[in-house]
């Protein structure tokens, strides 16, 4: 056997193992958004190396090259065009879970008809420990759909995303009143009343109540 070919293949193998080590190591660092980008890029590099050296793309005829490239290209087409949808939906797919939240899905008894709500019903059980004016999640849905949705659906500017249970749980631990205070007076990226001064404090409270529901949080602590 050709010694040089064999040595090259061994080197390629070592390189692949090195990249694997790099990939695993990167998962021990907190790089934020760059973690998945880095691991995917390293995987793509490994794939490229396998295709080029182990699968002999380097010395392949043009037509098999095109066939291989077409497979990857079509995959990117599919992912890219599908993402045009997912990156631009107002109603995040996380909201889809609404339908199955307790109180929203097939509540056997006590479903309260509410003609004002878009879904036609109010949630069954109100969180018992809320402040004096309890949020009305059903009317909050309308406030949400006209104002809050612009940022909270997709998490613009660090806003907790609707339906993101973990994010809302963390915030709900401060108590609803604190959330209302922050939303009315502004807090970090959150403009006062979401930039809509015509909203009343109760409107804001309702909207927060709705978003807590959407996140599946039944009874926020004070």
């Amino acid at each position: 056997m050709d010694e040089r070919t064999r040595r090259n293949h061994l080197l390629v193998w070592l390189l692949l193992l090195g990249l694997l080590g790099l990939n695993i190591a990167s998962s021990f660092l907190d790089l934020g958004i760059f973690n998945p980008i880095l691991t995917t890029a390293v995987a793509a590099l490994q794939a490229f190396i396998i295709v080029t050296f182990f699968m002999s793309m380097r010395s392949a005829a043009p037509v098999p090259r095109i066939a291989a490239a077409a497979g990857f290209f079509w995959l990117l087409l599919m992912i890219g065009l599908t993402l045009t949808d997912y990156q631009t939906r107002f109603e995040d797919i996380a909201l889809g879970r609404l339908a199955s939240k307790p109180g929203w899905e097939a509540p056997a008894a006590g479903r309260v008809p509410n003609p004002l709500s878009e879904s036609g019903y109010s949630p069954v059980s109100r969180p018992p420990t809320l402040a004096a004016a309890a949020p009305d999640a059903a009317s909050g849905e309308r406030v949400y759909a006209s104002v809050c949705i612009l940022c909270h659906a997709r998490g613009v500017g660090g806003a907790p995303r609707t339906g993101d249970k973990a994010a809302w749980l963390k915030r709900s631990e401060q108590g609803v009143d604190t959330l209302v205070d922050h939303a009315v007076n502004g807090y970090k990226g959150m403009p006062p009343k979401g930039g809509h001064p015509e909203l009343s404090e109760q409107d804001v409270r309702n909207a927060i109540g709705y978003m807590l529901y959407a996140a599946g949080i039944q009874s926020p602590r004070r």
């Binding site: 990939n23 695993i24 990167s26 998962s27 021990f28 660092l29 907190d30 973690n35 998945p36 691991t39 995917t40 390293v42 995987a43 490994q46 794939a47 396998i50 295709v51 182990f54 699968m55």
Partner: peptide
């Protein structure tokens, strides 16, 4: 090699989605 190549993507997608640090 293709089966290997697919795993090269499966591994980071599934196993490296978490922070281990």
């Amino acid at each position: 090699h293709l089966v290997d190549l697919i795993w090269v993507f499966v591994f980071p997608l599934l196993y490296l989605a978490a922070h281990h640090g």
